[in-house]
């Protein structure tokens, strides 16, 4: 508990957190605009053929609206989580930290707890904004808020789960890639560009080599979290919980591997 309090103080006493907070707001704004557009397109066409599942369904569109800021928010959370670890080496504070707490796995666990707090804070912040903004957006197309529907609250809840799992993955990645610049660039590129590129790769592979390979695309962490929150997009896609399980797997593997490496590695 002392370590957790120390980690929170570390976070509070540098300017990084509010820089990230300032970036978060416009990212959320962009996400809201994008989802607003999706609402307009999906609901305003007179022949709107709202299917129950899949891309463009009512459930997907409304869920998207209530989980605005997930794409950018998770990116910031995963970067901040990684930086919790890498900054210790970047600023040479690892020496002081591990002298105070020679049982290094406790430090990693405290950092994971801190990352989870960051994740839930960002989730709560974006969710409150969404609960205020989404009904307004829906009212522009004469739709109800859908806040009585289970699927909305399910999406919001799963969104929280995705945030937490990504935070753990970020801490693990920070241990595995100890360089601050290396970790942030790798994570950003994989997260932002990697998803698109890997989707293309899987599409090409499924068309040229073996069609079921397309189903494997959910192994990509970003697509796994998409599956977790918005549900299956294609008829052959596995159910939501598979996405959650894949994400949990990544988080567990990086966290365990990262902790073991931190325990053994020389600090010099």
């Amino acid at each position: 508990m002392n370590l957790f309090r120390a980690e929170l103080l570390k976070l509070r006493t540098t300017s990084l957190w509010w820089i990230f907070a300032i970036i978060l707001v416009p990212l959320w704004g962009v996400a809201l605009a994008y989802n607003w557009l999706a609402v307009e397109v999906s609901f305003s066409s007179p022949e709107a053929n709202m299917e129950n599942v899949g891309f463009g369904s009512l459930e997907t569109v409304v869920s998207g609206l209530y989980t605005c800021g997930q794409f950018g928010g998770v990116l910031l959370v995963v970067l901040l989580s990684a930086i919790l670890i890498t900054s210790e080496f970047f600023h040479l504070t690892a020496t002081s930290t591990f002298l105070t707490t020679p049982r290094r796995e406790l430090v990693v666990i405290a950092k994971m707890a801190t990352a989870v707090v960051i994740a839930l804070t960002v989730w709560l912040f974006t969710t409150l904004l969404n609960l205020a903004a989404a009904p307004l957006v829906l009212s522009t197309v004469d739709k109800p808020s859908y806040l009585g529907e289970t699927f909305v609250w399910q999406a919001i809840g799963l969104n929280a789960l995705a945030f937490v799992l990504w935070a753990l993955l970020g801490v693990g990645a920070g241990v595995l890639i100890r360089s601050q610049i290396g970790a942030t660039i790798t994570l950003s590129v994989l997260y932002v560009v990697g998803t698109q590129i890997l989707t293309i790769v899987f599409t090409v592979l499924s068309q040229t080599v073996w069609e079921p390979l397309m189903g494997l695309r959910v192994l990509v962490p970003t697509l796994a979290s998409e599956l977790l929150i918005t549900g299956p997009m294609l008829p052959d896609d596995p159910p939501r919980w598979v996405g959650g399980l894949i994400l949990l797997g990544y988080a567990a593997v990086t966290a365990v591997l990262g902790t073991l490496i931190t325990r053994r590695r020389d600090v010099s």
Binding site: N2, L3, R5, A6, L9, K10, T13, T14, S15, L16, S87, H91, L92, T93, T95, S96, T97, L99, T100, T101
Partner: peptide
């Protein structure tokens, strides 16, 4: 161990308080 082992953006007092907390 080495002189330059605190976060550049953190005050000296907060650096010490982090250690106190831990």
């Amino acid at each position: 161990l080495e002189a330059s082992s605190a976060h550049r953006g953190r005050s000296a007092r907060n650096h010490l308080r982090v250690i106190c907390r831990a």
